[in-house]
């Protein structure tokens, strides 16, 4: 049984892998093309300082988009990430603020406490959504739409609608510090990417995620605990949203109740541009990273050239639809 299962899954992977390589290659070429155009048209684009800026500006969306990739691979969607960013950012900030009015009793605590709290808030939101999706078969769109609203409300209740200022320098280090000249948010994005890449390509859990998204009924019949896997991907997305929320507040120096509004859209855009299929089972975290970089590079390049941000939105829209159109065409070709 187990050898048979392995055989079918490996041939299934093989045909898909070929298609994926083409997809990834295509998106990578598009990325290089964009970088090429911007390097030629703007003298500052390819300077070390600007490359560091682009990576820094991509880090939060990158972390969110990687979490979103796990969810979308199982045919789900997570609309709540922006609100969870705000909630986790605010709750964790209240543990490291030196403001007498905005902090919890005994604040500021050491950074690790805030980090643990922020991740836990994210995990909590993700677990609640995952539980509702996997146990009650509520569509992910609806469950996470509910969390989008609830987590935003909880953020406003928790902070009384006010920002949490004056975060400890130790905590701010995760947003403004650097290791060997590499900004901390970029280091965190790299770590999240490597671990996620390893989980999705090298572990059994990763293969199960693809199996659940590719064909949930087949996955269930072959004995996989489908609802457990569905539950866990939302927990992963929630935890990464929590991390992103802390990077954001550490960067801006203050946790704001309006933080992260519409961040879910950029995260979904990065996943889709990166070639992950919204119908599940197909896609790669490498593609997502490149998708996030494309969005970051485009926004940065247009800013450098002094082009109004409204054009950036139009271009991003065209890019999302264009990427999926190419994807569909290629799928029909295979």
């Amino acid at each position: 049984m187990s050898s048979l299962e392995n055989k079918t899954s490996s041939t299934w992977l093989n045909s898909d892998r070929r298609r994926l390589i083409v997809q990834e290659y295509g998106i990578f070429l598009a990325f290089l093309l964009l970088v090429g155009i911007l390097s030629v048209s703007n003298q500052f684009f390819l300077t070390p300082g600007n490359i560091s800026n682009v990576l820094l500006q991509t880090s939060i969306n990158g972390v969110l988009a990687i979490g979103m990739t796990f969810v979308i691979l199982t045919r789900g969607i997570d609309l709540s990430v922006g609100s969870v960013v705000a909630l986790a950012g605010m709750v964790s900030a209240s543990f490291v603020t030196s403001s007498a009015t905005a902090g919890v009793a005994g604040a500021p605590y050491p950074m690790v406490v805030a980090l643990a709290v922020g991740i836990l808030v994210g995990v909590g939101c993700g677990a609640l959504v995952g539980f509702i999706v996997s146990r009650f078969s509520v569509p992910a769109f609806v469950a996470t739409l509910g969390m989008l609203s609830a987590a935003r409300g909880a953020t406003l209740i928790y902070g009384g609608g006010k920002p949490v200022p004056a975060l400890s320098p130790e905590f701010r280090w995760i947003g403004t510090g650097s290791i060997l000249g590499i900004p901390m948010p970029v280091v965190l994005l790299a770590a999240v990417f490597l671990v996620s890449w390893w989980v999705l390509t090298r572990t059994r859990f990763g293969r199960y995620i693809y199996a659940v998204g590719g064909n949930p009924h087949a996955a269930k019949t072959s004995g996989l605990n489908v609802s457990r896997i569905r539950f866990l991907v939302y927990v992963i997305s929630g935890a990464l949203s929590g991390l992103a929320g802390m990077i954001l507040s550490a960067r801006t120096g203050s946790a704001l109740p309006q933080a992260g509004i519409a961040y879910e859209l950029d995260a979904i855009a990065a996943v889709v541009i990166g070639g992950t299929s919204l119908s599940g089972g197909v896609g790669r975290v490498t593609g997502t990273l490149i998708g996030a970089l494309i969005i970051g590079v485009m926004n940065n390049g247009l800013d450098l050239m002094g082009i109004q941000s409204y054009y950036q939105q139009v271009l991003k829209g065209a890019l999302i639809v264009g990427a999926v159109m190419l994807d569909q065409k290629r799928n029909q070709g295979v």
Binding site: G49, N53, D303, M305, G306
Partner: peptide
């Protein structure tokens, strides 16, 4: 009106107008 958006904008301007 957003702090995060202004931060990104200023980072890019500091690059293009050193």
């Amino acid at each position: 009106w957003s702090r995060a958006e202004a931060q990104t904008l200023m980072e890019n301007w500091l690059t293009s107008h050193p």
